[in-house]
């Protein structure tokens, strides 16, 4: 999904650059709360790990392979703010050192693969861990969070493409192709994230940011045989809920909306053309399907690709609703806490 130079027009590249820079700036501030003296190395390791697992291409369907995005994993392991920083570093290093992803498209890449995946991933994760407690809840939440974060990123890509892609392709065709492939990638990513988080949780629960607060009591036994039980020192839990992320998401949406309206007004034919070329849509979709490796089969695991795309979009909408719901209940819970304290 790494976008090269010249793929999006200057306005979108620039706006996405601004969004990415603002997002990273917010996260640099926020990361201070998440990190102790182990933070930078842990974040570096997570970045390196995500870099490595992005190389670990796994087969999606005959002939094609996808790679993880890793945003949800980063958010769960080191917290959302540091997670965004990890993703930004991965993309920066890939762009500068490996020429993977254009330098002028860095803002787009960070926005789509860094901010959107972390935002959606962390939102889903918090929501599920609030519903299902314990280690099982954390693992399940990790699976769902990354499963959903990947098509969400594909959707963000499609949205940006619709606003300012330089290629004259039907946005619906892009949506179907991106959505379909990325729902499948999302399943793979969900499994890998769940297994990774599960494995880390089993061996080193202290390393999983999203599982802070699960620590059990320590039993300290003296040499004289006397046994004392001491509660584990509970680290400050990730108490800064979803609000900053919601605000970030709203800001992002507003910014994008602003760019859309700018384009809508400056080149109305661009959008109208979509309607006019209705006849082309079918043709374009057909071509895209026949190109897509999935097209040869028409279905993957019994799910027609078109349906997969629709599912992807549906899931994202569901998530948006769920995040909103979570924010509301959290807000109420926080209000409740305040009352108890007072």
């Amino acid at each position: 999904m790494h976008v090269p130079d010249g793929f999006f027009n200057a306005a979108v590249s620039g706006s996405a650059g601004a969004v990415a820079a603002a997002g990273v700036a917010v996260c640099l501030r926020g990361a201070r709360r998440e990190l102790d003296d182990r933070t930078a190395p842990m974040a570096g390791l997570v970045a390196a790990f995500i870099f490595a697992v992005q190389m670990l291409n796994f087969p999606v369907a005959a002939g094609t392979s996808g790679h993880l995005l890793g945003g949800a994993l980063a958010a769960i392991l080191v917290g959302p703010y540091t997670g965004v920083l990890c993703m930004a570093v991965v993309l920066l290093v890939q762009g500068v050192f490996f020429a993977d992803g254009g330098l002028t498209a860095l803002g787009i890449n960070v926005t789509i693969m860094g901010i959107v995946t972390v935002l959606v991933g962390w939102g889903v994760f918090r929501l599920v861990t609030q519903l299902v407690r314990g280690k099982g809840g954390v693992t399940a939440a990790a699976f769902l969070a990354s499963l959903i974060s990947v098509p969400a990123a594909a959707l963000a890509f499609t949205l940006l493409f619709w606003i300012g892609g330089t290629a004259p392709i039907e946005v619906s065709a892009v949506a179907v192709a991106m959505g379909g492939v990325h729902v499948l990638i999302g399943v793979g990513e969900g499994l890998i994230t769940a297994f990774t988080v599960g494995a880390v949780l089993a061996v080193r629960p202290d390393l999983v940011y999203g599982a802070r607060g699960l620590a059990s009591s320590l039993v300290l036994r003296g040499p004289d045989g006397a046994t004392t039980v001491e509660p584990a020192a509970r680290p400050a839990t990730a108490g800064h809920g979803l609000r900053p992320f919601l605000l970030g998401g709203v800001g992002l949406t507003l910014l994008l909306a602003g760019v859309v309206s700018f384009f809508a007004s400056s080149s109305p034919d661009g959008l109208e053309a979509v309607a006019e070329n209705k006849g082309f849509i079918d043709q374009a979709t057909e071509h895209l399907m026949s190109w897509s490796p999935l097209g040869d089969y028409g279905e993957v695991g019994g799910i027609p690709v078109g349906v997969a795309g629709v599912i992807g979009v549906g899931i994202v909408l569901l998530v948006a609703g769920a995040v909103g719901y979570a924010a509301r209940t959290r807000g109420q819970a926080a209000a409740g806490d305040d009352k108890i304290k007072v």
Binding site: V203, L220, P223, A232
Partner: peptide, 16 residues
């Protein structure tokens, strides 16, 4: 002196 420690997973390594 009297050093005791248990790892986060609950395994105790030092007992004083």
């Amino acid at each position: 002196s009297r050093l005791a420690y248990a790892y986060p997973d609950g395994t105790q390594a030092l007992f004083g």
